[in-house]
Design a protein around this nucleic acid. Structure first.
Lengths: 390, 390
DNA sequence: GGTGCGACGGCAATCGTTTGCACGATGCTC
DNA sequence: GAGCATCGTGCAAACGATTGCCGTCGCACC
């Protein structure tokens, strides 16, 4: 039996996944024609239709590796996180991933533990995988990490942590810190401690700045001995809180720049025989899911939306649209850990019994981002999409 | 000026990263010779030394994309997680990543939300990136997901969740569940509820099995109306607990098959005016960092070591060593949420006074894994490295 | 001094896709 | 109806590394 041109019994017939060549043999068209037809709408053209049909019959999927070699683009974007075990970074990553996959990109993620050497190394690794753009979630305000990234010649956008004037999608950390400060002052606290985050992180710094602003507005002093580094982990939070308690047993409230350090602080308070929310008002930041269980007041922002917008911004940048910064609102969620006003005897728990959450249920409306300066002030409520970050 | 063969002013001189050809021009050797010399020890050979010197002078880094096209290997391994926002999966991922990078591999991660369609899709995406092996962290006991993965023809290993007889690195969930059961019974509880995990997950099932075993051993009944699905998230945990409380307000203890559902359960209890640890003993599973802050009893295992071993196992499998299953110990950590015996009183616990953590401080020795059947019984203490999976 | 062996280096094909160029046919405009 | 633009197709050269196959050379051994 001679081979009808219908049954491909050529060399390529047998093994492996179908390639352009398989399709070319099947359709009788040149491989380059097939390649082009595949990028057209199947309905646009008889050839396109033919090729698409053959492709789906044979289960063809283009090989991104080979394509990437030729085009020098990979269809992948890189994300650099400080640690995915930080659930906020994981949420951001997941949102990025979802948008990216939907738009035909893969996400390659690397974590650096905020170590500058690892940052360089992992970015270079991503580069050698030819990522088409970078999302940096572990930016440092000091050092030249981000400046270096900017020289790489590929699109990039920061998320969560801003740095200098680089395009960044962040939440309004400063405003969040301000709300915490106002809240604690309003509850009657005067000896308020700050368990700060690492100095290289804009989130930490901005939260602290806003917090200090609120205290200053109210005329409340924040002496140096009420400030301790609390890191990003429960362990460092616990140690910082221990030091604070040792030095200033009279403190009545503490603002932890992250929920994780707040977890550590909570443990420290309990170990000292103190009850968070009754003896020491405690507020965290980020409102991770565990915070609700812990009845911990915290500042909420829309992390998933942050990631989503970062992904869209980057993909647009890859397509030539210059990246613009944006800032999402941050809203304090008051729960039992700070709901009781200072000295509140009867106040201690107005409700049915326990010192319960004050305004937990109704989700604080997490609106759309305000475009504009990343370190934007909370003012300017007018939806003014002007003023890109310089 | 004629070109001395020292200064490469050839076409390739100007732009872009150096390639093998650049090195070839620089050294006067053929590109294939350069390629081979690069894989030799620089000290082994004058040629190798020459090439390595040139390479580091020019900052050459081989292009994994091009290499991958030719070799059909990528130097990357794929990990499929159900969600990296589950901090346990994130910990496992981070451990895998660390080992992999150290061994010269990259890790490509995809998350599937336990959706079977997404599982297929993401695995195929990883495949088209030519990953050299797969680590599956979202295995289902039902369905044919893992069986399908096994037919793909690339090395794979499961982690966290086992399935059938496939090679899996897990912790001893059954033994963990058993310890929880024994503990709650020993505390005097008889109306004990189970907030189970999803039925497709071996972790959930094994934990439940061990738990039931312990109750049965003690002659304690676990009627169907004390069992509710609690999912993997605080929301589902909260809902499940609400249903349990509505149906059986007399329950005195609850075992949540994951810490996250325990968080939700805690919220539900509080909302019902009950205090976890005083009114209803609560135990979770996994001992995530927030559990300590919440004073939640939980079952601890060495997730990072799990991930590490999974990575090593997979990389060995890529090198031809057949993958073997392993099981790590799981140890109950008793904290305030379950430290008070039922009916309180003098029984309250031999120790000092407050119903504080019973065995929290001293890290329960998290030993090396016992190799052997993934569903291994806790017996066979003898360090017996025999018995591959089945 | 001849033969054989091993090591090393060069040649060229290859992985699968994209893309600039050329060519022919078609359709449109004037 | 002629000229010109447009479109679709084929051709072949990339992208950068790896690798089977040889030729050549050096060395050792007989």
């Amino acid at each position: 039996m001679s081979a009808p041109d219908d049954t491909p019994d050529l060399a390529s017939g047998a093994a492996g996944r179908p390639t352009l060549r398989t399709l070319s043999e099947r359709t009788g068209l040149h491989v380059s024609t097939v390649s082009r037809a595949l990028r057209r709408d199947p309905a646009s053209d008889p050839t396109a239709a033919l090729v698409h049909t053959a492709a789906s019959e044979l289960g063809y999927r283009r090989d991104p590796v080979a394509a990437s070699l030729r085009t020098r683009r990979s269809g992948a974007i890189g994300m650099v996180a400080h640690a995915l075990t930080d659930v906020v970074q994981a949420i951001v990553h997941e949102a990025i991933d979802q948008v990216a996959v939907q738009q035909g990109y893969d996400v390659l993620v690397a974590s650096t533990r905020d170590d500058p050497a690892a940052q360089r190394q992992r970015v270079e690794l991503l580069l050698s995988r030819r990522v088409d753009g970078l999302i940096i979630a572990d930016a440092h305000e000091d050092g030249d990490y981000v400046d270096w990234v900017a020289t790489l010649g590929i699109p990039y956008v920061l998320v969560m942590r801003r740095a200098g004037d680089h395009p960044a999608i962040v939440c309004d950390d400063r405003e969040g810190g301000r709300q915490v400060g106002r809240h604690l002052v309003a509850q009657g606290h005067r000896e308020i401690a700050l368990l700060a985050g690492p100095g290289y992180s804009a989130t930490s710094n901005d939260r602290a700045v806003g917090f200090r602003e609120a205290l200053a507005e109210a005329g409340v002093d924040l002496p140096a001995d009420l400030v301790e580094p609390g890191g990003l982990h429960p362990t460092s939070g616990r140690e910082g809180m221990d030091r604070l308690l040792a030095r200033r047993p009279d403190l009545t409230a503490v603002f932890c720049a992250s929920d994780f350090s707040a977890f550590g602080a909570t443990t420290a308070l309990r170990a000292a025989g103190l009850v968070p929310g009754r003896d020491v008002a405690t507020v965290g930041f980020n409102d991770v899911t565990a915070a609700a269980a812990l009845d911990l007041s915290s500042v909420r922002s829309a992390h998933a939306e942050l990631g989503e917008l970062a992904a869209r911004t980057l993909i647009a940048a890859i397509d030539g649209v210059p990246a613009e910064s944006a800032s999402f609102p941050a809203t304090l969620v008051v729960r039992g850990s700070s709901a009781t006003p200072l000295g509140g005897g009867a106040v201690l728990s107005a409700g049915g019994g326990a010192p319960r959450a004050a305004c937990d249920g109704p989700d604080p409306a997490v609106g759309p981002p305000r475009h504009g300066s990343a370190s934007g002030t909370a003012a300017a409520a007018a939806a003014d999409p002007s003023g890109a970050a310089r």
